[in-house]
Design a protein around this nucleic acid. Structure first.
Length: 611
RNA sequence: GCCCCCAUAGCUCAGUGGAUAGAGCAACUGUUUCCUAAACAGUAGGUCGCAUGUUCGAGUCAUGCUGGGGGCACCA
């Protein structure tokens, strides 16, 4: 029984009271999950909300509602509590049904049916194709990708999109940088050039080295003057647009490859150059409608006073070049034209000042500025064992995303980036992320899954080795999911408070997905895994330690102990463990983190293999 | 000066307007006949930065203040 089901039930109860004249209000009740088990499974504050309008005491209204609800088949108890809550406890076998439903959903547990409605566009990373992605881009990439996965799980139609700023001063600098390095490789020293803004990173040297092999330079390379291919390229001069094209193309491929490693993929890529082709008629048309105007040779868009924007902004500079803002605004209008109802952009926090400008721009075009949602991702501080790792971009000597992934792996990178809300700063401890031990949260979460798998594996081995009495074999097979449909495991076989608590937690996944998607907060899914995993570990250890009540019989137990074993309870627990595993898998899948069946432990561990 | 984000346990951080504010790490005290003890339990630790307001009810919403980070171009 999920939140929606209960909500419907409470709404019906309120409607009944209304029909009978016990209530007059038309306030719709809101239902929530309780924080604490003592308060039951679900709760509604309806009585307190309605008290004023009804001119009754909250507890009196609550009492009416409780009586109305307690008659329902799925409700074990409806109690008035505190200042006027109605707490609901769902019948035990309703949880068992919930587990069955979760298992029936299998791989898709946690995924919600399509909500319909206009598709959502999530644009993220969108780093300039002028250099490799750095660690900060990585966080944006992972948060964006996890959000895409989350929204899809919540039943939304989503397009993940990358916008390439492959036009303008930055990429011209890249082109120049390639030429500079070609020159250097030919003459053994850097040429004298104007400006200090060229890109000095080593990756440009690689581009320069490979340039001669690129098809677009074939003529120069083939017919070049004495000195060979490089001389032909140098002769073109630093501002030949082919260096820009070549550099951009190579960097795009490299960036996409880095993201692919991180399991980040895009359905759609838009090039600023393509947008720029339409920019002139677009803004001239706006000018003709007085939405834009000329001043001192530049064209300004009238946006002052809209959406908190404090001045009109330039779309075409006096030198005739269209600004980044001009193409970006047109691009956003295009996205809306493509049918997206919502444009979610993930930006670095340092771009926050740009939000009012973009919203105001959309408003000036007569578009709904609220269609644009911007998630600001705060900065990442890399640390190693608590000590800050230096990241200097100016020298071109910064830590790249590829280097980070090389160092700690894809799963750890993704998981760590999802351990904080996107709008709070993140300390990423490389040493911790690498550690193959349980104080590493990534490792802990994956270990939790592997442990669930190990229990199920051992259960299967027990059955296959013929150590389960004939009379209980069918029962255990069902617990392991080998038969379908025949409910031979009695509902009462799983009845411990801890088991029920964990069932309650795992069955909340669909609600968690819906809420996290609505809030655009993928990190909640990571917390879900962490908490569920931890709850199970606690249960598992305590069952044995404190109660001598393991899920499976101890390895050395032989007959007659095995014959007397409570196989019914074991079967029920195995089925329940499969449901926990389904929830962990579903959640890790949204995070884009793998759920391994076995863990690889570090080699220097002193633990002996148990064969 | 204006704008954005943040402020919760020693540290790093969770916490859809609900009831006694939580987790991890660190500290201390314990738990091995085992299914991975590479695990788990318990204890201690809090003026939710400060103030006012809205509300039946505020860590959560509003306003002001303090402190930290970031941003305020005919840059991208």
């Amino acid at each position: 029984m999920n939140l929606k089901g209960i909500e419907k039930l409470v709404a019906e109860a309120v409607e009944n009271l209304r029909r009978r004249g016990d209530l007059a209000t038309d306030i719709a009740p809101v239902v929530g999950r309780t924080k604490s088990e003592e308060h039951g499974d679900f709760t509604t504050n309806f009585a307190m909300v309605a008290a004023k309008a009804e001119r009754k005491r909250p507890r009196d209204i609550a009492a009416l509602l409780a009586v109305e609800l307690s008659g329902h088949a799925d409700i074990e108890a409806a109690e008035v509590a505190g200042p006027g809550f109605v707490n609901l406890r769902v019948r035990g076998d309703a949880w068992v049904r919930g587990i069955d439903e979760a298992l029936a959903a299998g791989e898709s547990f946690g995924r919600l049916p399509s909500t319909g409605g206009a598709p959502i566009n999530v644009e993220f990373v969108s780093a300039n194709p002028t250099g490799p992605l750095h660690v900060g881009h990585g966080r944006g990439a992972v948060v964006g990708d996890a959000l895409v996965r989350l929204l899809r799980a919540a039943g939304r139609e989503v397009t993940a999109e990358y916008y390439w700023n492959d036009r303008g001063a930055q990429v011209r600098e890249l082109g120049r940088s390639v030429w500079i390095r070609v020159h250097e490789q030919l003459h053994g020293k850097l040429p004298v050039v104007e400006g200090e803004n060229w890109y000095r990173g080593d990756y440009v040297k690689d581009l320069a080295r490979d340039a001669a092999a690129d098809a677009r330079f074939a003529a120069e390379v083939g017919n070049g003057p004495a000195g060979g291919a490089a001389a032909g390229l140098v002769a073109l001069g630093p501002d030949d647009p082919r260096f820009v094209d070549y550099g951009c193309e190579r960097m795009k491929m490299s960036i996409i490859a880095t993201l692919a490693r991180l399991r980040v993929a895009f359905e759609h890529q838009t090039s600023e150059r393509a947008i720029a082709a339409d920019v002139e008629p677009f803004f001239l048309e706006l000018e003709s409608r007085s939405l834009a105007y000329r001043d001192a040779g530049a064209i300004f868009l009238r946006i002052e006073g809209r959406e908190g924007e404090d001045k009109d902004r330039v779309v075409r500079k006096s030198d005739g070049e269209w600004t980044y803002f001009a193409t970006d605004l047109l691009y956003h209008a295009n996205k809306l034209d493509r049918g997206f109802g919502r444009l979610i952009n993930i930006w670095g926090a340092d771009h926050h000042g740009y939000i009012p400008r973009m919203r105001a721009g959309l408003a000036a075009l007569g578009r709904d500025p609220k269609a644009l949602e911007v998630l600001l991702v705060q900065m990442v501080n890399l640390t190693a064992g608590g000590q800050p790792v230096k990241m200097s971009k100016r020298s071109g000597d910064f830590v790249t995303l590829d280097e980070l992934v090389d160092e700690v792996g894809v799963d750890a990178t993704r998981y760590m980036f999802l351990t904080r809300r996107h709008d709070s700063q993140l300390d990423f401890d490389i040493e911790l992320a690498k550690k193959k031990s349980l104080d590493n949260p990534v490792f802990y979460a994956q270990y939790g899954h592997a442990r669930l798998c190990a229990i199920l594996r051992r259960g299967a081995e027990l059955l296959d080795a013929g150590r389960v009495p004939e009379s209980s074999r069918a029962l255990l097979a069902e617990g392991l999911g080998r038969t379908s449909g025949r409910a031979t495991i009695p509902p009462g076989a799983l009845g411990l408070v801890e088991e029920r608590k964990i069932a309650r937690a795992l069955l909340a996944l669909p609600d968690q997905v819906a809420e996290a998607a609505e809030a655009r907060e993928p990190h909640r899914i990571v917390y879900f895994v962490q908490e569920l995993s931890q709850a199970f570990q606690r249960y598992y250890t305590e069952r044995w330690k404190r109660h001598a009540d393991p899920v499976l019989p101890p390895a050395r137990l032989e007959d007659p102990g095995l014959a007397a074993w409570n196989w019914e309870r074991t079967a029920a627990r195995l089925r329940w463990i499969r449901a926990i595993r389904a929830a962990v898998r579903g959640a890790l899948d949204i995070a884009g983190v793998q759920a391994p069946e076995r863990m690889e432990w570090s080699e220097d561990g002193d633990r002996e293999d148990e064969a």
